[in-house]
Design a protein around this nucleic acid. Structure first.
Lengths: 210, 210
DNA sequence: GACAAAACATGATTTAAATCAAGTATCGAT
DNA sequence: ATCGATACTTGATTTAAATCATGTTTTGTC
């Protein structure tokens, strides 16, 4: 999503640039929100901490705003965010943002649109996780990486197989088997952390049929 | 959620009251959004249509606003809504609402808060569906009905066992067995469409442990 | 009230996927 | 280069829950 002039002005006034190392926590669920995060580079995961388990809500890459949900009454982050690789971000003071949202209706409308978009994305992910099985879920991850994050058919990911298993809500062993099948069927060519999508239509089909 | 003065003024100016019969579609996913729905009475389901399947996003009862996600750029409803029983609603013209959102920042902020709240609810539901198993999911349904919708421990629902199975994403047969177990263990007393929660703490516990 | 049609219950079987188990490959540190 | 640790693979077993199959109860209709 492109940023508007309003948002760019805001950025230039209040930005603090920070780098996070691989594995570091960028946003902690439950903490009082001090800022919204704009990802300049690197891949991050947005996730719910739920007792022992975690549920990954989304992967986000460059040019994404994260933490907008904390612009609410209590200013508590409703999820955690951590870095899959070294990440560079801008931190935007949440009070400033809240002030602008409360006074500039056009700006508020745009933030609203961003959150609605995320809400729809989240609903789709819910459908993916609860209606599809292994192959469909992995196909969805491939589509997400290829279309939303890297915008190519061949790319390197900072994700281990274990990470991918967590994202698609399956066991590590199942992940291994699914990848093997995709490779054997010439749908993908996945070696180490290099992913090549060979048959995009088949991936899309598997995503649809579940 | 209580409505503010602003919202009430809006209501009084633009409301059209409509009744829907059990089973009727109130909002159709993919359609151009003409209005936002305020539920005056009756239980409705909000759901994604996903090929043959459907994924129930939430149950909503009286005093809820539904369809806020359609206040976005393209004004397309991102989900369907239908009536579990005879339902009485107010329809609010979406153009009017959009206009107010675009000009009154305080109002926009409130809508934003509502959508953020729904977004958090939705994330929790995602966690429920993908991390918990049968008993935990059913416990969550009981908590939702008892705390969010009816605000009592004994209530009648317009839901068949099949409906409840769909909501908790399990088969009808599993639903039967889970209910039997809950009744046998004196956690609930469910007969026909009357639900009594006998041991609230146990329900809460089952919801937590999954 | 009789009948068909749903809704519901329950036991047996099957299935998808997790877990368990045992291995190999890869990576990082010394 | 060696060692240990971690990541990954792959087959065997187990498990949760769906499906299948059948029976029973409830509901609505004429």
């Amino acid at each position: 999503m492109k940023l508007t002039t309003d948002e760019l002005i805001l950025f230039n006034k209040n930005r603090v640039e920070v780098n996070f190392k691989k594995g570091e926590t960028i946003i902690k669920q439950g903490a009082l929100a001090g800022h919204i995060v704009y990802v300049k580079s690197g891949l991050v995961k947005v996730f719910l901490e739920h007792g022992e388990n975690e549920l990954i809500l989304s992967l986000e890459g460059r040019k994404k705003l994260i933490g907008l949900q904390a612009i609410n009454s209590n200013s508590i982050y409703p999820y955690s965010v951590s870095a899959y690789e070294d990440v560079s971000v801008c931190l935007l003071d949440i009070k400033t943002l809240k002030h602008i949202v409360g006074t500039n209706a056009k700006f508020a409308e745009q933030i609203l649109n961003l959150i609605i978009e995320e809400s729809n994305f989240s609903h789709n992910r819910m459908a993916c996780l609860s209606l599809k099985q292994l192959h469909g879920r992995f196909a969805d991850l491939l589509l997400c990486l290829s279309l939303r994050i890297y915008r190519r058919k061949v790319f390197k990911v900072p994700l281990s197989k274990k990470d991918m298993a967590l994202i698609t809500n399956m066991s590590q062993e199942s992940m291994s088997r699914v990848i093997k099948e995709f490779n054997d069927d010439k749908i993908t060519d996945i070696k180490g952390n290099r992913i090549s999508i060979l048959d995009f239509e088949k991936v899309r089909h598997l995503s649809v049929v579940g």
